[in-house]
């Protein structure tokens, strides 16, 4: 039996650069593919309601008559399906996650 097999790893880690980042000061670089949050450019939106019908989580609400489009961020599972089916391609997947609320 060896004594303290973990000690070597711990000592090595002690003298290396930290594996974590000081989060609020240094934010992580997101990858281009990252599914962060759904955005809709309502200027080009035709309010067809396709995204509402296709959303697996039922997170999008569209009222055509009132030209109303809303996404419930708590229900959204960021699956990217609404972006795929959008006929006008006015919806995009932003690579940044929703920022935490500060108030």
């Amino acid at each position: 039996m060896r004594i303290l097999p973990m000690a070597k790893i711990v000592l090595k880690s002690l003298f290396r650069k930290a594996a974590t980042q000081m989060y609020p000061l240094i934010t992580k670089e997101y990858y281009p593919a990252t599914r962060g949050k759904v955005l809709n450019d309502t200027e080009f939106c035709i309010y067809c309601g396709m995204c509402q019908r296709k959303c697996p989580a039922g997170a999008i609400e569209v009222i055509r008559a009132k030209r109303y489009w809303a996404l419930d961020p708590k229900r959204c599972v960021t699956c990217n399906y609404c972006v795929e089916v959008c006929p006008k391609k006015c919806m995009t997947m932003d690579k940044r996650y929703t920022a935490p609320s500060t108030n």
Binding site: Y31, A33, T34, R35, V77, T78, C79, N80, M93
Partner: peptide, 12 residues
Amino acid sequence: VEETTGGRVIFG
């Protein structure tokens, strides 16, 4: 995995 699929936990 996040870089290649877009999701860290749920790959999609």
